[in-house]
Simulated assay, not measured.
Amino acid sequence: MSMLRRAFASGSARYIAGRVGQAALQLFGVVTIVFVVLRLSGDPARLLVPQQATAEDIARIRTQLGLDASIWEQYLQYLSKLPRFDFGYSYVQGRSAVDLISERLPYTINLALAALLLSMLVGIPVGMASAYFRRRFLGRALMPFVLIGQSMPAFWLGLLLILFFSVRLRWLPSTGFDGLTSLILPAITLASLSMATLARITRSSFLEQLNADYVRTARSRGAGTARVLMGHVLRNSAIPIVTLLGLEIAALLGGAVITETIFAWPGIGQLTVQAIQARDFPVVQAIVIFVAIIYIGVNLLTDMLYAVIDPRVRLAGSGEQV
């Protein structure tokens, strides 16, 4: 028993160390790419001066912003500040980029969590039902709704919801944040694609497991439908579902730009649009790196969760015999 425990700990340590190393390299790549791309997008100093400004005025602004240094000097200075989470100050608002994100972050988190909860509560049961009742009317009736959810653009769905529930029925507010009722329409809009994708992946995974030998064995031993589905099929279908949920958590936090713009939601997505339009380098860099940390962190946790769900993943990642 002690030998097995040591082997498990050794395999887990190598597996986790490898994933952490990959995450560090990915983050470094994102940091470098976003710096280079933003520097190629244009000179923000020209947007901060009036149209009649002279070349001397533009040069003075560039000096104040530190943009007169070479690209390498700017890059090294940028890297030296990252460990302290010092992303600089907004060129437009003159405030710390971290402070601006901190103000908007709770709104985006609330919206993303509401959308994720809605996706799970609808997507997974719909996927399970469409797989189990695949030869019946219910299974055939659910799939068209899944396809519509995957096909309908978020901006179009958001406008339809506003026109129906806000303009015609006047049940819910259309824009801004004014209590929990303001969260309903943006959450449905943001969750629409996630719900449909989660339902489709759950259905495919369930169909594969429903035809497995262990399901027939469990039924032959008298196991009920609920026990077979929840105790056996769901567990063995968990890896693709967990993979998708990990991706969706990061996507919902970082990809709510369209939804927040439609509903004038005061989150990070709206701040991103404003910062890009103004070429506000510090704010854009901080947002992109923040989103990248979320993506990489969630993927890292998902990889570790694989090892808990299926030990074969851990053993394969550590180079041991499966």
Rank of each mutant, 00 (worst) to 15 (best):
A154D: 14
I241Y: 02
P282W: 12
G11F: 06
G42T: 00
V257N: 02
L157W: 13
Q285A: 13
S174R: 00
V298T: 13
T225C: 01
R219W: 11
A191G: 01
P266D: 05
R5N: 09
D57Q: 15
T108A: 00
N211Q: 15
D280K: 04
M3V: 08
N110I: 11
L113D: 04
L25N: 02
Q277A: 12
F8M: 12
P125K: 06
T217K: 04
S166Q: 12
R279C: 05
G267Y: 10
I287Q: 04
G179C: 11
G317I: 03
G66M: 05
R104D: 13
S151H: 01
W265D: 05
L252K: 09
F8C: 08
A251G: 10
L100D: 09
M304K: 02
F206R: 04
V34Y: 05
P44H: 12
A275S: 14
F165S: 08
A114N: 12
I201T: 12
A199E: 03
S70A: 07
S90T: 12
I262Y: 03
L67H: 03
L169R: 07
G231H: 08
L67A: 07
S237T: 02
I148W: 07
R134S: 15
P125S: 11
Q52I: 06
L315H: 07
F206L: 12
T32E: 00
